[in-house]
Design a protein around this nucleic acid. Structure first.
Length: 274
DNA sequence: ATAAGGCCCTGACCGC
DNA sequence: TGCGGTCAGGGCCTTA
């Protein structure tokens, strides 16, 4: 499941493969993949455009085109992008295919069809609700404290809220809370100022480490993630609690516990996290 | 305004 | 082997 570190790894890997290349044509096999404009307009508008720059915001990939428009891609759970040779045929999970003038093709695959693609003049249309970028100066303890104040939902649920901080998903929310030694069931508004600072730091540390390790490539299954260059990430080796239910906490040895919060699996150490 | 639950999807997994 | 049921999960939508 691609979160900020996985999406960052993705865009870094794709940039050198796509830089300067031009789109000769597009094929949409599952129209709902295209969130905007409609699939027909998308195919017409994207033809002839070249990739000129590459960026990321939260879990969104941003491909700047030479027309000034931006191709925005959100992989959600199971989306994948791959640059493939011309003779690689799309399979049943390929919902969008971009033919490049180089002869290669960019395949968008997505088993669960949750991912979405936009082609927009102005990315703010898509990104309007996103909170601060966690590894930038826009994300500060004071702002986080303000966003949490008065909130009665569990802190885990609030970390998953993309309007509070962009890019944190289930893996890094659990890891950040472990880092900050905060019980994920705590009411967000009840955190002390010191705890908010610890959490701010925890979010930044786990995301930074995640990027260094090229993201978390979890075991087999539909949620597996592998970067576009095929070299798996290694961040999963350093998960302290995520999907480690019953295994000893790496700090104190007490078994990691699993609960469900905001309809999401949540893993924590009942002894270290208070 | 906030919180909670449903929905979209399909492969994996389980029990029979 | 086959079958039905359950689960996971990001973001958007609806409801309270």
């Amino acid at each position: 499941m691609p979160e900020l570190p996985e999406v960052e790894t993705y865009i870094r890997a794709l940039a050198p493969l796509l830089q300067g290349k031009r789109i000769a044509g597009a094929h949409v096999y599952w129209p709902r993949t295209i969130a905007a404009p409609d699939a027909g307009a998308f195919v017409n508008l994207i033809q002839g455009r070249g990739f000129v720059h590459f960026d990321r915001r939260g879990k969104y990939m941003l491909f700047g085109l030479d027309s000034g428009e931006t191709l925005v891609v959100h992989l959600r759970m199971t989306g994948e992008l791959r640059v493939q040779p011309a003779d690689m045929r799309p399979d049943k999970h390929t919902h969008l295919l971009l033919d490049l003038e180089s002869g290669e093709r960019l395949h968008y695959r997505d088993q669960r069809k949750f991912g979405r693609v936009w082609l927009v003049d102005d990315v703010t249309q898509v990104l309007a609700r996103l909170g601060p970028e966690p590894l930038s100066g826009d994300f500060a303890p004071s702002g986080l404290a303000q966003a949490l104040s008065g909130r009665t939902a569990a802190i885990k649920a609030l970390l998953l809220d993309q309007s509070i901080v962009a890019g944190v998903g289930n893996i890094y929310a659990d890891e950040a809370l472990f880092h900050a030694r905060i019980d994920p069931r705590r009411t967000g508004g009840d955190l002390t100022a010191d705890e908010v600072v610890c959490l701010w730091q925890g979010v930044r540390e786990v995301l930074t480490k995640g990027i260094e390790l090229r993201g978390s490539s979890l075991g087999s299954g539909p949620q597996n993630y592998t970067p576009p260059d095929g070299l798996p990430g290694e961040a999963q080796e350093f998960h302290q609690v995520f999907r480690r239910t019953g295994l000893p906490c790496p700090v104190c040895g007490v078994p990691v516990q699993r609960v469900v919060l905001a309809q999401r699996s949540t893993h924590f150490c009942p002894s270290c996290q208070r």
